Simulated scan of single mutants.
Amino acid sequence: MYTNIITSQNNGITTITINRPLKLNALNIETIQELNAAFRAADLDADTKVIIVTGSGEKAFVAGADISEFAHFSVSEGAKLAAKGQELLFDFVANLSTPVIAAINGFALGGGLELAMAAHFRIASDTAKMGLPEVSLGVIPGYGGTQRLPQLVGKGRAMEMIMTAGMIDANQALQYGLINHITPQEELIPLAQKLATKIIKNSSVAIAGAIKAVNAGYEDGVDGFKAEIEEFGNCFGTEDFKEGTTAFLEKRKAEFSGK
């Protein structure tokens, strides 16, 4: 079905693996389109409660964008590339109603780190390295990097990372708050699955509302508190709310339908 990615579904978890090992899983236009299709399909799949995105092999999550594709672009073509990429993948993932965990198994550079930052949270192997090297190529991060990195690590650290074009290791990324957990390589996917299983136990419709409310707080001109009130109110009209509160009062485990 796909040329550059592999998808699998098991126990409510869809795993999307970027599989271009000879290119260190670099994102070309075709891969971005395939990822859009895979994330869209998983989000629409009633059996998928969590999505894990990772890279194939042990070297790279995604080592960046495929520079050969845009080295000769004009100003307008460059702007269009960034706009299209953000629409198809990076903003698309950030606003999905299904939770997305990035399992960073190696280099996450440029567009790779931007993809990981678009996920709802990140975990990494102890061998992972992260950075935005774009200014060393005479360009800036164009897939949301200048916006999401400061949100996650603070303005000063983001400025330093972007300006130096340097890489940080997993320990520094954990200290910065860029990732939530570090684990040995062989335990990375099992940890992602363990976290996904904890998420699956909860109401998927409530989680979708929480994602929307959290994201609203980072949007210009949007009142995050107002969005929270609205999403909180919407929960009262769901079957999951009735089930969750009834189960709590009856001292039993809730069985959520996701409706």
Rank of each mutant, 00 (worst) to 15 (best):
E134L: 12
P150G: 01
I140G: 10
G131R: 13
M167T: 14
M159L: 11
N180A: 15
M159V: 03
T146K: 13
V139I: 03
Y176M: 00
G156F: 00
R148F: 04
G177P: 06
G154W: 07
P184S: 13
Y143A: 06
T146E: 06
P150A: 12
P184Q: 15
L149S: 01
L137A: 13
P133V: 09
H181R: 14
G156N: 01
A173M: 09
D169E: 09
L137S: 13
D169K: 03
V135Q: 14
R157P: 00
K155S: 14
I182T: 11
Q147T: 10
G177W: 01
Q151E: 15
L132R: 10
M159E: 05
P141S: 04
I140K: 14
Y176C: 00
V153P: 08
E160M: 06
R148Q: 00
V135L: 14
G142W: 13
G145R: 04
H181Y: 15
Q175G: 04
M167N: 04
T164K: 12
A173K: 10
K155E: 15
H181G: 07
M159T: 07
V139Q: 08
G142S: 01
E134W: 08
Q172P: 09
N180D: 15
H181L: 14
A165P: 09
T146S: 08
G142T: 04
L149N: 03
K155L: 14
Y176Q: 07
L137P: 00
I168N: 02
N171H: 14
A158W: 07
T183R: 05
I168A: 05
Q147D: 14
H181A: 15
A165M: 12
Y143K: 04
L178Y: 02
R157G: 02
V139R: 07
I179G: 00
V139W: 03
P141W: 01
S136K: 08
Q151W: 11
Q172H: 06
I162G: 05
Y143G: 01
M159A: 06
E134T: 09
N171I: 01
L174K: 04
T164W: 02
D169S: 02
T164H: 00
A173E: 02
G142R: 13
L178F: 09
A165S: 15
L132Q: 07
I179S: 07
A158D: 05
A173V: 05
Q175I: 06
M159S: 06
L137F: 14
R157K: 11
Q172R: 07
L152E: 04
G144V: 10
Q151S: 03
A165K: 12
G177S: 02
V153L: 05
P184I: 12
A170K: 12
N171F: 06
P141I: 05
P133C: 05
L152I: 12
L178M: 15
P133L: 08
D169R: 01
S136N: 10
G142Q: 09
G138T: 12
V135Y: 04
A158Y: 00
V153Q: 11
L149Y: 00
Q175Y: 01
M161Y: 06
I179A: 03
A158S: 03
Q147Y: 06
A165G: 13
Q172E: 12
E160T: 08
D169Q: 03
E134C: 09
E160H: 08
T183D: 10
Y143V: 11
M161L: 09
A158G: 05
Y143I: 03
G131E: 08
A158V: 05
Q175C: 01
